[in-house]
Nucleic acid binder design. Structure first.
Lengths: 202, 202
DNA sequence: GTCTATAATGAGATAGAC
DNA sequence: GTCTATCTCATTATAGAC
């Protein structure tokens, strides 16, 4: 691990930290665990980063930049109509949560930690802006593809999507009730579709 | 602090821990902080409880028993119809979150911590069962009071209510956008009311 | 520049005096 | 039974050898 510029080390540490956090949670992301994940000696940590919270800030930047949600942005849904597409996208997110629950939990933990840490308290706003933008983008793309229109401001619907997504994830993490989660997503789909105008709008 | 039975001390510690957690978060709820809150010497902690996680388990029991949600159960809403009552109840919850954001955040932190701690991993299920029961009870009471019926199983609607409530709380904690939160609750109310039959059911 | 070795701190838990 | 004083451990952070 020699001859590597500090900025690259910093980035490598942030990625290693995200891996540790996704696997074991924020509390387990000690400086030791992070450098072990990155294959660096302990002293490299403060050589590159200054403090643990500073690195966690970098990690949230990664999430904001989309590294935590990349899977959803590149999703390709093949559905006959908008309703099916919406439901399938929710379903794809459910699969994501079921495949890697610890990762989704880690996103919540990062937010909570940042909210409790004065130096990081601004980051959750950016994090949720990023989520809302992703949802709005998916909603807009869906409407365009199926020739429909949303009858409410897309930002309001995006916030609803993120809220129901977060809420559904939390309850699933708590009780792992797949069937109830599916029914909840049906309900969420109904709620969204109640605010569409398809074909020729008024 | 003499002559107090161990079981009472244990309960006192659990309440003190909940106070600390509600104010400063789970990570700040060290044994020292908890006994300071309770006005006890440090050694009383392990005299009464065994371990920190054991006490956190007690704290979640308190939440499950309703101490974290008592405000909502005793809510008295005065509204002309079911829709207004639903919206007002959501609004009351928003007020609760705005009045004591740290407390609501603490509920999330307790869940996350329990999920990451093998000895406590069963508790989130009970915690969410308790939430779902509270929501179901509120939905049933509302329908009865206004002579309406829900056209979906009340447990599914209860899960939707808790999900949207959690999700809305998380986004509000992140960006403190009151206006957006109100619009989200309007949307959630619409979604619920789409599943009512009022007057004479089929 | 890099990393071994070591502070310095704060944590959970306990021994033993009263 | 109760609590003071202490132990042991893991943590963040740094000093100083190479």
């Amino acid at each position: 691990m020699s001859r590597i510029p500090a900025t690259e080390r910093r980035a490598a540490l942030a990625h290693a930290a995200m891996a540790v956090i996704a696997r074991d949670g924020v509390a387990a992301a000690t400086t030791r665990a992070i450098v072990a994940e990155a294959g660096m000696p302990l002293a490299s940590f403060h050589y590159a980063v200054g403090s643990r919270d500073e690195l966690l800030s970098d990690v949230i930047e990664l999430v904001v930049a989309g590294e935590g949600t990349a899977t959803l942005g590149s999703l390709e849904i093949d559905a006959p109509d908008l309703r099916s597409a919406v439901r399938a996208t929710f379903g794809a997110y459910l699969d994501l949560v079921r495949t890697d629950p610890a990762r989704e939990q880690a996103m919540f933990e990062l937010t909570q930690h940042a909210l409790r840490t004065p130096a990081l308290a601004d980051l959750p706003r950016q994090q949720y802006d990023s989520y809302h933008q992703l949802a709005a983008q998916l909603l807009a793309a869906g409407a365009e593809r199926y020739g429909a229109q949303w009858s409410l401001p897309i930002d309001d619907l995006a916030r609803f999507v993120i809220a129901i997504t977060d809420g559904f994830t939390l309850s699933w993490l708590a009780d792992r009730d797949d069937a109830a989660a599916e029914r909840l997503l049906d309900l969420a789909t109904d709620a969204l579709m109640a605010h569409t105008l398809n074909g020729a709008p008024a």
